[in-house]
Amino acid sequence: MRTKRLTTMAILTALALALSWVERMIPLELIIPLPGVKLGLANTVTLFALYQLNLPSALLILIARCLLTALFSGNMTGLAFSLTGGILSMLVMTLARHSRHLSVYGVSVLGAAGHNCGQILIAMILMHSTYIWGYLPYLLLIGTACGVATGAVSSGVLRALGGGKHHYA
């Protein structure tokens, strides 16, 4: 692995961790009291990595971010949620990116939906309860709003920093 790519990935991982931490200061769960509701700012980093680097790099950054967040917070249940949600979200975004009809906004929204489905899936498995899916519509609606927001942020970031492709690789 080239040094430049390694450095870029390390910086992006650190940035994603910082964003997850900043996000915790925004008390979204006070307005919308559902477990697992969050803005998804760290997804900006994932989107950036997907558009500017490649899938393996984006996946590595995601896994590193999830592991480190779990390590810092000591919340191992959270790890199962963030990993399942994150990987499903990345899968959806990778597919969505190849559609010529979608911009980073659509990719972000579909990624958020994938994340929500992953969260519900793991909740159903961990709690041995199928009823949990009753939460899915609410998560999806909030996730869509947050997805548009992160899409806008990503669009701005990519516009400002994204020169030619593999510029950061």
Binding site: S99, H101, L102, S103, Y105, G106, L110, G162
Partner: peptide
Amino acid sequence: LTFRRGDAVAIAGV
């Protein structure tokens, strides 16, 4: 990077 009609369709779909 700019919002497209397909995005609106995706949002409406979700």
